[in-house]
């Protein structure tokens, strides 16, 4: 339930951002992380970026997550709704 996944911010418009999560694009809210800019990595939870990530560490996590198949699990509820 408290799972958050890393995503790369592609572009920012006001409090909204387009992010890339392992190849999937999605619009998210930056209301909780207003200082984020394009190129940053964030932790994504329920459509909101909840914190900024260290980029090098984020790439590493994303790679590990893709390999471990956790990314698909985290996205499953979106397809249901």
């Amino acid at each position: 339930m408290c799972l958050a996944i890393p995503a790369k911010v592609l572009s920012v418009e006001g409090t909204k951002a387009m992010v890339d999560m392992g190849g999937i694009r999605r619009e998210v809210s930056l209301m909780l992380t207003p200082d984020v800019a394009a190129g940053d990595y964030v932790l994504l939870h329920c459509g909101y970026a909840i914190s900024q990530l260290d980029e090098e560490e984020a790439l590493e996590t994303l790679r590990i997550m893709e390999e471990a198949g956790i990314l698909e699990d985290a996205l499953a509820p979106m397809e249901d709704s």
């Binding site: 339930m1 408290c2 958050a4 809210s29 209301m31 909780l32 939870h45 329920c46 459509g47 909101y48 909840i50």
Partner: peptide, 13 residues
């Protein structure tokens, strides 16, 4: 609204 400190701010927003 269910969840701990991780989720509650998103619902507050």
């Amino acid at each position: 609204g269910i969840g701990f400190e991780t989720t509650a701010p998103t619902v507050a927003a």
